[in-house]
Design a binder for these strands. Structure first.
Lengths: 349, 349
DNA sequence: TTGAAAGCGTTACCAT
DNA sequence: ATGGTAACGCTTTCAA
């Protein structure tokens, strides 16, 4: 059933029926009631295709996941994020369009999306330190929000990010306070913005105590379990192994744990491990496993906030760029102990 | 730039330009060339909203993820699957619409999607043993493909599934051949179709040797690391613990490994572990970690195949239901050894 | 408060 | 081979 049929059936004009259904004030309460009931009864909802053409709005939001040729992994955080955002879209009658786009045809895909008018705005995932998509979308005039930031881009733009720098500064400071001096960092790929900010926080905590990061304790790579396993083995083989390790995600942390177990080492006693876990919700450990968890933020809530910001930019117009920085919650578990040498002193004293 | 402007610019009618761009045969080669060049130069692509209304097709496919109130976890396989499917859609000019729908407003969401005409077809994820969505979509006349199956639904419908039954039958048979008799199964939620089929394969392998599954060795739960950890501890505490364990996913398997390590047990020597891993691709272990891997299938390829089937159902009409059963590849690693008692015999002999 | 009619930007039918 | 025009199903402007 379409609008014309429904209005014929009611003995009203399509105009009035449309108005009644879209909450226009100039329609009488009596008519509105009648129309609404008839619509429900005949299971009518306006044809999305016609509505989109008539209003000039796509009523959909694009979520664009970058995927380079070498690194085909999709961030696990994504599923949770999209759940939160999708819910908000649904409330406002928007659809969520998902597109996995390879780096190489990035520009074409974005231009096409804009000129086709398939979306009213997009969310950018996985921003690099210097991400070309921001300039591109600005040029295209397509409203967007970045999930994360792109530090080397100077222009203003909308973003929602978690305070990665601060989270890693606090985690590092925690370990330093426990007496650790050789702290390893297993970070994500160096060109990812979140990884750069985490590294910055790490460096700042050290600098505050006049310490400098040691190159052989720092690594950047895609966050797989294998990475954690192999890297931890390398670290243990160093002349002076670290007494503590900060891991950028739960996935490589699983590998780290395996390497420690293989080496017969005990968490918190022989070595301290701090994990940052945007990802933890995915594992649903219910507070059980990694007791050595350090920080966590609600990924789903971030999705909701991002959606909110984008919808606002679309409906209420661009205005000044909006930025929201979410603070990660610090949780300290039993796998963070004093440095071995420190504990020896404590025991002796 | 829209069609009218482009055609004015070329001194042609919109009709001709549209035909040239859509590959109709009745347009002269010379004109087509001219039109194509002008379109590229002016960065013209037809407005998706207008096209959709004119053709009566949404040119988009919905992917519908169920999410119950209690179990908010999104299957990690999903990201890979959607990448494969999305690529195929893009090739055919279709957009991918993603919707996370809660069980409670399932019916309303589906009806709305159909009457709004927002999609030309949908892919159903995470089917239950008896999934009401199949009857609903059939009634709505919306083309669909199920990723997985719904065993207790008798009507025909399109599906793409991996041979879960066979994979678990083979895994179980492998362990039985190695001499194991007390084999535990850590399965997914009992009402999920994939879990039911895996259990069926497990039972069949036992039955083929006149063995029956033992209730205290079987468990069904959401596949978290915690589940693997706690369940493995329960199993080890049994009067007669299992000599082998089959785990339905890599996630709980990580918990199983942790429990074994905690208990001071060695894989393959003290206990055998077989993991089924649709999920493994996500971890990108590059053949390193779980050497105790049993089966694997290419999730991305499954996505592509599913997309292909749905597009065919949409464009070439419904026809007879299509079904594709993908075989899982069996890989046996070093963590599957003979049963402890068996090995003792071998050593003594 | 209601209705008629003009758009939205395509595609597709019918002429030429 | 090309063009005029209706149609797709809504929203929105202008009249009444």
């Amino acid at each position: 059933m379409n609008l014309k049929e429904l209005s014929d059936h009611l003995g009203l004009s399509p105009t009035t029926v449309s108005r009644a259904l879209n909450g226009y004030p100039e329609v009488s309460e009596r008519t509105r009631k009648r129309v609404e009931e008839a619509a429900k009864q005949h299971n009518y909802s306006p044809n999305a295709r016609a509505k989109r053409l008539a209003t000039g709005r796509a009523m959909s939001i694009g979520h664009l996941l970058p995927m380079s040729k070498e690194h085909e992994m999709v961030n696990p955080v994504f599923a949770d994020f999209i759940t939160g955002a999708g819910k908000r879209y649904a409330e406002e009658g928007y659809d969520l369009l998902l597109s996995v786009v390879r780096d190489e045809d990035e520009e074409e895909t974005y231009r096409d999306l804009a000129t086709r008018g398939a979306v009213d705005g997009v969310v950018i995932h996985g921003p690099k330190v210097n991400d070309p998509r921001i300039a591109l979308l600005t040029e295209l005039g397509l409203p967007f929000v970045v999930h994360g930031r792109s530090s080397e881009v100077n222009a203003g733009y909308n973003w929602v990010d978690v305070n990665n720098r601060r989270a890693f500064e606090r985690a590092t400071a925690l370990l330093l306070d426990l007496g650790h001096r050789r702290i390893a960092l297993l970070n994500g790929l160096a060109d990812m913005d979140f990884a750069a900010r985490r590294f910055a926080g790490f460096r700042e905590a050290l600098a505050a105590r006049d310490l400098a990061p040691e190159a052989d304790l720092i690594s950047h790579a895609e966050m797989t379990e294998t990475y954690g396993y192999q890297r931890m083995q390398e670290l243990l083989a160093l002349p002076a192994p670290p007494t503590a390790v900060i891991v950028s995600s739960i996935i490589p942390a699983l590998g780290v744990r395996r390497a420690l177990v293989d080496a017969g080492l005990k968490l918190a006693e022989d070595i301290s491990v701090v994990i940052h876990d945007d990802d933890l919700s995915y594992f649903r450990n219910d507070g059980d496993v990694p007791t050595y968890t350090a920080t966590r933020s609600s990924v789903r809530e971030a999705g909701r906030i991002t959606a909110e910001m984008l919808l606002s930019a679309i409906t209420r117009g661009a205005g000044a760029p909006q930025n929201i920085l979410l603070e990660a919650e610090l949780m300290v578990g039993q796998s963070t102990g004093p440095a071995p040498a420190v504990r020896r002193l404590l025991n002796e004293g």
